[in-house]
Computed example of a mutant assay.
Amino acid sequence: MTTTFRDAATTLVGVPVRAQTYRNLLYLVLAFPLGLAYFVGLTFGFSLGVGLAVTWFGIPILLATLAGASALARFEAGLANRLLGTDVRAPSLDTSGGVLAATKRLVTDARTWIAVGYLLVKFGLGIVSFAALATLSSLSVGLMAAPLTYSSNYYVGLRLGTITAGPFESGRLAVDTFGEAVGVAFLGLVVAFASLHVLNALAGLCGTITEELLDSSTAAGATDEN
Rank of each mutant, 00 (worst) to 15 (best):
89 R>K: 12
51 G>T: 15
46 F>E: 13
31 A>H: 06
64 A>V: 02
23 R>Y: 04
78 G>C: 08
116 V>W: 10
52 L>R: 03
102 A>P: 04
57 F>S: 02
72 L>N: 13
102 A>K: 04
109 D>P: 01
64 A>S: 04
107 V>I: 05
90 A>C: 09
37 A>E: 04
108 T>P: 02
71 A>I: 14
100 L>I: 07
111 R>T: 07
53 A>F: 15
83 L>A: 01
59 I>D: 08
53 A>N: 12
23 R>P: 07
91 P>T: 01
99 V>E: 01
68 G>M: 12
67 A>V: 10
59 I>A: 03
32 F>W: 15
19 A>M: 03
89 R>I: 00
51 G>V: 12
71 A>S: 14
87 D>R: 01
69 A>Y: 09
28 L>D: 05
49 G>C: 06
78 G>Y: 11
79 L>P: 02
109 D>H: 03
24 N>P: 00
19 A>G: 00
50 V>N: 15
94 D>Y: 04
53 A>D: 14
46 F>I: 07
41 G>E: 11
77 A>T: 04
113 W>P: 12
84 L>D: 00
59 I>N: 11
111 R>K: 06
72 L>E: 13
47 S>K: 09
79 L>V: 05
56 W>P: 09
47 S>R: 10
100 L>W: 06
24 N>I: 02
52 L>P: 00
30 L>A: 15
101 A>V: 02
37 A>Y: 13
108 T>F: 04
27 Y>R: 11
47 S>P: 15
30 L>H: 00
56 W>Y: 04
72 L>K: 12
111 R>A: 08
76 E>M: 00
59 I>M: 08
81 N>I: 07
80 A>G: 10
88 V>G: 08
45 G>A: 15
109 D>S: 02
26 L>T: 07
70 S>E: 13
106 L>C: 06
73 A>N: 08
32 F>Y: 15
100 L>Q: 09
57 F>K: 02
40 V>T: 11
112 T>K: 02
96 S>H: 01
41 G>M: 14
67 A>I: 08
